[in-house]
Structures are given as C-alpha cells and as structure tokens.
C-alpha cells in the first residue's frame, strides 16, 4: 500500500522523469560511470550483436531491479548481496536459455558474454544503489533507463566498428569495397577501446561539465 502511494507521488512529482534522465543521460552507466566495459568492448564488433546485448541488459536490469525492490523490506541485510546475485543470475540464465533455444546463431556469436551479464557491474550496481531503497515502479524505470543508456552507447560503438571494420551495416554493404578498404583494427579489441574512448569523449562534450564538480 505504502509502495503504491509513494511511487505515485514520486512519478507525479517528476521523480520518475529524474530517474529516467539520470540513468540514461546525466549518470549514464557506460559513458559517465564507465561500468560494464568488458561486455561493451567484447560484443560490439557488429551492430546486431550490440543490439541483442543491449536488449539482454535491459531485460536483466528491469527484472532484477523489480524483484530486488519488491523483496527489499524482507531481505535480511547481511545476505542482500547474495540475494541480488541469485536474482540477477536467474534472469541472465533465462535470457541465455531463450537465445540458445530460439536464436542459436546469435547465441553462438555472443558466446559467453550473455552469461557474463551476471557479473556486469551495472546490474549489480543498480540493484544495490537504487532498487534496494526505492519502490518497484521507480525501480523498473531506473532499470529501463540504465539499460537503455547502456544499449544506446553499445549500438553507437557497434555501428561505427562494423561500418569501419567491414564496410557493412547489419551485413549489408554500405561502404563499397571498390573504394573502401575495411580497417580490420576496428573489428579487433584495440578498435573497441578507440571507439569507446571517442564515444565517451563526445558524450561528455554534449552533456557539458558536471555542475557539482565545479563547486
């Protein structure tokens, strides 16, 4: 009951909007907090892989945030982290099984990285920092915002790496091979670091300086 009232008041009072904005923009998990880098570097050599990985993270983030938030008043403080990991792992394995059953090729391409979402700091971080203190609806919003914040950055990196690395987008030739020599570096790991660095730099220029930092 109390949950319902709080979240409603929160939403009407613009708390929902603030949460969304913070997760996806001012406190973007990848570009500002620089979390979840491992997967962001590993699976972004193709746009399609990046998109699927983004969807996976949104699903896991929303699901685990919701459950952690629902259980927050019943979870013993001492074992809260174990409980969070158990919940996160459950959602990750569910998604992994789904991919293995219905999108076999994608599952093969992403390899171990779907399973590794269990250890993604973004998911655990949101459960610990947000869902544990906030009502379910707000927590879902926070999960969506952070998931989208991650997915969009991943998609941007994936777009440029596939475009420059293979001359293609989603497997369709965009830069004709008659004049464009694919830059293999972009497909390999160093290209991921370079692309991520550029994206973080541009993101921070667009966002502008953090007002709190200048105080």
């Amino acid at each position: 009951m109390a949950d319902g009232c709080n979240s409603c008041k929160g939403l009407c009072g613009g708390k929902g909007l603030t949460t969304m904005k913070e997760g996806a923009w001012t406190n973007n998990p990848l570009a500002i907090q620089v979390l979840g880098i491992c997967s962001a570097l590993a699976v972004t050599n193709k746009l399609m892989n990046s998109l699927v990985m983004g969807v996976a993270l949104i699903f896991v983030c929303v699901g685990s945030n919701l459950l952690v938030s629902l259980l927050r008043k019943h979870t013993p403080h001492r074992i809260r982290m174990i409980a969070e990991v158990a919940i996160i792992a459950t959602f990750v394995i569910l998604f992994d099984q789904f991919l293995r059953a219905f999108y076999w090729d994608m599952s093969k391409q992403l390899g171990p990285y779907v399973g590794l979402i269990i250890t993604n700091c973004i998911v655990m971080g949101r459960a610990e920092a947000f869902a544990l203190q906030n009502p379910p609806i707000l927590s879902i919003l926070d999960g969506i915002a952070n998931g989208v914040g991650y997915a969009v950055i991943l998609a941007i990196i994936g777009f440029f790496r596939e475009l420059l690395g293979t001359g293609q987008i989603m497997g369709y030739e965009v830069l004709s091979s008659s004049w464009y020599t694919p830059n293999q570096l972009m497909v390999l790991a160093p290209g991921a670091f370079i692309a991520l660095g550029f994206v973080i730099a541009v993101f921070n220029v667009l966002k502008g300086p953090d007002p709190e930092e200048n105080k």
């Binding site: 259980l71 019943h74 979870t75 013993p76 001492r78 074992i79 174990i82 409980a83 158990a86 919940i87």
Partner: peptide, 10 residues
C-alpha cells in the same frame, strides 16, 4: 529468518 529466506529464494 535469514536461513529460511535464503532457502526460499534459492
């Protein structure tokens, strides 16, 4: 309580 909670969640 902690034990039962862990058991149920697991």
């Amino acid at each position: 309580y902690t034990l039962i909670y862990a058991l149920l969640l697991g």
